[in-house]
């Protein structure tokens, strides 16, 4: 069973950046199956507030993906090939494939873009002992395939009222060449996801963007440059 909380307007925005048909597949799907009652791994409900701050100068972030999964799951690994789900998010900002991964028990999505300098917060709930690992992922939309986040944060030892803080690096999914033209964000409004892989095909630390000050034909201007860290994540256990 998987519980998804997906406010409808997040998909409207996604459709704008990813060229999807508006509202297709849009629903709030709270699965009420009885299966959960039989789950032996259920425990009392733990509640967390997760806040993400966009630290970049001019890189809006796609709707943030928050997922809960088990200890052995990593949504990505530096040096390894990106999964298709990460590729789809990193190139087009669509986080729905991450939510659909079989390893993911619960998935939440931001309800719109997270603008530079702004913060968004979510309340998430975990009631499964074996799924106490959080991953946060989002695309830097004025790039070809840059994303950021943190995967596999262990929530199980966080006590009520306590907080954890992380800052995150910009990764390059390695699935699309950084031509600085085929990017879906407002700087270009160009192509998002494309299943062709024409880059090094491994996740790595993003080398940064050049902008039109240094790369002829780039759709980016100097304000779109970024340096690490690109987001700050704060997780507070509420109950």
């Amino acid at each position: 069973m998987k519980t998804q909380f997906k406010p409808a307007h997040s998909l409207v925005w996604l459709s704008l950046i990813a060229g999807m048909s508006v509202l297709s597949g849009c629903s709030i799907d709270i699965n009420g199956d009885d299966d959960d009652d039989k789950d032996k791994d259920m425990h009392e409900s733990y509640h967390y507030q997760v806040t993400v701050t966009n630290l970049t100068q001019a890189q809006p972030l796609s709707p943030v993906s928050l997922t809960l999964h088990n200890a052995s799951t990593k949504l990505w690994m530096a040096g390894e090939m990106a999964s298709s789900a990460i590729e789809v998010m990193a190139e087009g900002g669509d986080n729905s494939k991450i939510a659909e991964l079989s390893a993911v028990k619960m998935a939440y999505s931001g309800d719109g873009i997270l603008m530079p300098g702004h913060s968004q917060s979510w309340m998430i709930e975990s009631m499964y002992e074996n799924y106490m690992y959080l991953s946060v992922a989002t695309m830097l939309v004025n790039t070809n395939d840059a994303f950021t986040g943190k995967t596999g944060i262990d929530l199980s030892n966080l006590e009520v009222g306590m907080s954890m803080h992380y800052t995150t690096m910009a990764y390059d999914a390695g699935t699309e060449a950084n031509d600085e033209i085929n990017l879906p964000g407002p700087a270009a409004g160009g192509e998002g996801y494309n299943n062709t892989r024409n880059d090094v095909d491994r996740v790595h630390i993003h080398p940064g963007v050049l902008s039109n000050a240094e790369l002829t034909g780039s759709m980016l201007s100097p304000e779109h440059k970024f340096d690490n860290p690109v987001t700050k994540i704060t997780i507070t256990r509420m109950q």
Binding site: N54, G117, E223, K225
Partner: peptide, 15 residues
């Protein structure tokens, strides 16, 4: 500059 909050500096461009 569109981001008028304190943020990570994008770096100098220079020439």
């Amino acid at each position: 500059e569109s981001n008028n909050m304190v943020h990570i500096h994008p770096g100098n461009i220079g020439d």
